[in-house]
C-alpha cells in the first residue's frame, strides 16, 4: 500500500509539468554550462570590466587621486581575474573558471559603484575656478572677494575647503608674514561662518546646500606699513 504524496509548492519548485514547460533548473544548467564551456563566454567578464573602465574614463570627474583608491583596486581585481578567466582553457578547470568569472563580475560591479560614489560625492579640485587668482600689495584691513564657480551640475557640493597663501608683496622688504592673517567668511550663505586663517592654513566651510557659486570675503590683517599678496592655493569642494 502506497502513501499519497503531500501537495507540492509549485512556486518554489525547480520543475514544471505539462506541455512545452521548461524547468528553471534546466535553464540554469544550460546557462552555467554555456558560461563555463563555450569558448566565447570566457571573454565576457573581461569585456564587462573593460566597458566599465571605458565608461569611467568618459565620465571622469577629476579631484584628488586618493579618493579613487577603492575604484582602482576593484578595477585591477576585475581585470586581473577576467584575464585569468580567459587563460583558463582546460575543460577540467570548470570550478576555477566559475570562481574567476564570479570574482571578476563582482569586482566590476563593486568598482562601478565606488566610481559612481566618487563622481557624485567625491572631492572636486576647484582651485582653477577661483577668481581673482591673486591680489597683490594689500595693506592691513583690505577686503578681497573671491568667487568660485562650478559649471557642471554634477560638480555641486555642500562644503568647501580653502587654503590661502599670504606672502610678502616684496620679498626684499622686511618680512611681515608672521604678523599676517586673514579673516575669511562666506558671503553667499546666511550662516555666520568666519575663520581666522594664518598663511598656508586651510579653512573649511559648510555651504548650507548644494551650490555652484560660492563668494568668500577675505579681510587681511597685517602689521602697519606691510604690503602682502593674497592667493588661494587650493579650493576643494566636497560633501559633508
Amino acid at each position: 500500500m502506497s502513501t499519497p504524496e503531500p501537495p507540492r509548492d509549485i512556486h518554489n519548485s525547480p520543475t514544471t509539468h505539462g506541455d512545452h514547460s521548461i524547468a528553471a533548473g534546466t535553464i540554469r544548467n544550460v546557462v552555467i554550462r554555456w558560461a563555463l564551456q563555450h569558448p566565447s563566454a570566457s571573454w565576457l567578464p573581461l569585456l564587462l570590466a573593460c566597458a566599465a573602465v571605458v565608461l569611467a574614463g568618459t565620465a571622469w570627474p577629476d579631484g584628488p587621486a586618493a579618493q579613487y583608491a577603492l575604484w582602482g583596486t576593484l578595477t585591477a581585481v576585475s581585470l586581473g581575474t577576467a584575464t585569468a578567466r580567459v587563460l583558463v582553457r582546460r575543460p577540467d578547470d570548470a570550478r576555477r573558471a566559475a570562481v574567476l568569472s564570479l570574482a571578476s563580475v563582482l569586482a566590476t560591479v563593486g568598482g562601478w559603484l565606488a566610481f559612481r560614489d566618487v563622481a557624485t560625492h567625491g572631492e572636486i579640485d576647484a582651485t582653477g575656478t577661483v577668481t581673482p587668482q591673486v591680489r597683490r600689495s594689500l595693506a592691513d584691513g583690505a577686503h578681497v572677494t573671491l568667487t568660485l564657480h562650478t559649471t557642471a551640475p554634477e560638480d555641486t557640493r555642500n562644503a568647501l575647503r580653502l587654503t590661502l597663501a599670504i606672502d610678502d608683496s616684496d620679498p626684499a622688504a622686511p618680512t611681515c608674514r608672521p604678523d599676517s592673517s586673514a579673516q575669511v567668511s562666506l558671503l553667499s550663505s546666511g550662516l555666520v561662518d568666519q575663520h581666522e586663517v594664518r598663511p598656508g592654513d586651510t579653512a573649511a566651510f559648510s555651504l548650507g546646500g548644494q551650490v555652484s557659486t560660492v563668494r568668500i570675503d577675505i579681510r587681511l590683517v597685517t602689521a602697519r606699513g606691510c604690503l602682502m599678496d593674497l592667493r588661494a592655493t587650493r579650493a576643494t569642494l566636497y560633501d559633508e
Binding site: A173, P174, A223, R224, G225, L227
Partner: peptide
C-alpha cells in the same frame, strides 16, 4: 614719522 614695515 615712521615709514614702511617694522625692521627686524
Amino acid at each position: 614719522v615712521t615709514l614702511g614695515p617694522l625692521n627686524r
